[in-house]
């Protein structure tokens, strides 16, 4: 995932090529915007403004529409995520089984807000709704790896392991 938040002018032509590629994958498909945005986010970890503008030119969708969509859907990010992503499940089962305490623990240990990234860009904290492991509630994922039946005491270990991994 990309760490840089600004894109230099000589990267412009790369952007152009990249967007053209994504667009050509979805050419002729009505209503392809969200799928293209998914592809862009998969590549960068977020949707950089420059790429959105290029996309606007390339597919003839106004930047207004693109931002309407980007800011509506929680899945899309406008700023680069952290190096490591922690998602704590706040689905019903996890909530009832102690997810709020986990979130508080992560927040206080990393000094990060929900949906925010630590100052050193190491960690990003998200709160998600049901990751499909209710049987293991409360659950969280760290860089895609699922941890089940987590207790607040486990958090410091999980963070340390992630840092060293």
């Amino acid at each position: 995932m990309s760490q840089s938040s600004t894109i230099t002018p000589n990267e412009k032509s790369d952007i152009r090529k990249e967007v053209a590629q994504h667009v050509s994958n979805w050419k002729g498909e009505e209503g392809n915007l969200i799928m293209i945005l998914h592809a862009i986010q998969n590549q960068h970890g977020y949707v950089p403004r420059e790429v959105a503008m290029e996309l606007s030119r390339e597919v003839g969708v106004t930047l207004g529409r693109i931002y309407e969509v980007l800011t509506f859907y929680h899945y899309f990010k406008l700023v680069p995520p952290g190096k490591h992503n922690i998602s704590v499940c706040l689905g019903t089962a996890c909530y009832l089984k102690g997810a709020p305490a986990l979130i508080n623990e992560v927040k206080s240990q990393l000094k990060v807000e929900e949906g925010g990234t630590t100052e050193d860009h190491e960690f990003h904290l998200d709160v998600v709704r049901c990751i499909g492991c209710c049987g293991m509630a409360p659950a969280m994922t760290v860089d895609g790896r699922t941890c089940g039946k987590v207790k607040p005491e486990d958090i410091s270990k999980i963070i340390a392991e992630t840092k060293s991994a």
């Binding site: 106004t62 930047l63 207004g64 529409r65 931002y67 309407e68 800011t71 509506f72």
Partner: peptide, 9 residues
């Protein structure tokens, strides 16, 4: 013109 839009939700 698309100068205005709704953002967030």
């Amino acid at each position: 013109v698309w100068a205005l839009s709704f953002l967030e939700r």
